[in-house]
Simulated assay, not measured.
Amino acid sequence: MVKALLLDLDGTLADTDPLHLLAWREALRPYGLEVDLGFYRKRISGRLNPEIVQDLLSLEGEEARRLIEAKEARFRDLAKDLKPTPGLLDLLDLIQKRGLRWGVVTNAPKENARHVLGALGLDPPLLVLAEEVGRGKPDPLPYQVALKRLGVAPEEALAFEDSPSGVKSAVGAGIRTFGLLTGHEAEALLQAGAYRVIHDFTDSALFLL
């Protein structure tokens, strides 16, 4: 029996990936890196910022911090008129009517998470930030923390993710996971362990809820 739903933030609550792609493209161009969609999906999407800049540029410390802060400030500047993923608000209404628990589990920095949630008018009862629990997706820890805080077993939860990294995190915590096709191809999400892929929250597969 499903008792809780856990949702990723970027690419799941809203289609923010095009904005992140643009912000990363601008941030990395001075370093001689050209970021197209394929590069973004393979090297950036679903990862923590410090890992990204270390992997791509071998940057750490103050220079890495400045680059990350500039990129995220640019993202927030772009992300002012966000729209929820189709069907999301109806799903959240259904959650409330059925007395289910829900929360958001994200690798996003706190300021970004608050910005996106505010732009969407959402106030989740639980927000788990990878930067606060110590390890980010694809590690299962963020989802393990979410399950513990909600007081539910893995088999009593469903997760919704849009990246292979996020799917691996949720599946690694033992949660049946839907992959949203907002940022990655179905094959990549299914290979990561997704139970099923959906285009958005209007998908008929969610009637099982």
Rank of each mutant, 00 (worst) to 15 (best):
E111C: 00
R98Q: 14
I52A: 06
G183F: 00
A153L: 15
L150H: 13
R29E: 15
R196A: 12
A119Y: 00
Y40H: 12
I198M: 08
G193F: 02
G166R: 07
V128K: 07
L67V: 10
L67I: 08
H20G: 02
R47N: 11
V171Q: 02
E34C: 12
K80V: 11
G179H: 09
D17A: 15
G118T: 04
L189M: 07
K110S: 14
L209E: 06
L56D: 08
G32F: 14
D55G: 01
F178P: 04
L88E: 03
G179F: 09
T182M: 07
L206Q: 08
M1R: 11
G11M: 10
E60D: 10
H20E: 05
Q96F: 00
R135N: 02
L9E: 04
K137H: 09
V35E: 13
P164F: 10
P164R: 06
L127D: 08
A205Y: 05
G46D: 10
D200C: 05
P154C: 08
K71C: 03
A64C: 05
A79Q: 02
L100Q: 10
P84N: 06
G118K: 02
P140G: 03
D15R: 11
F160V: 11
D15V: 06
G38V: 10
P124R: 07
I44S: 08
L189F: 01
Q191Y: 00
F39M: 13
E60P: 00
R41G: 09
R176V: 12
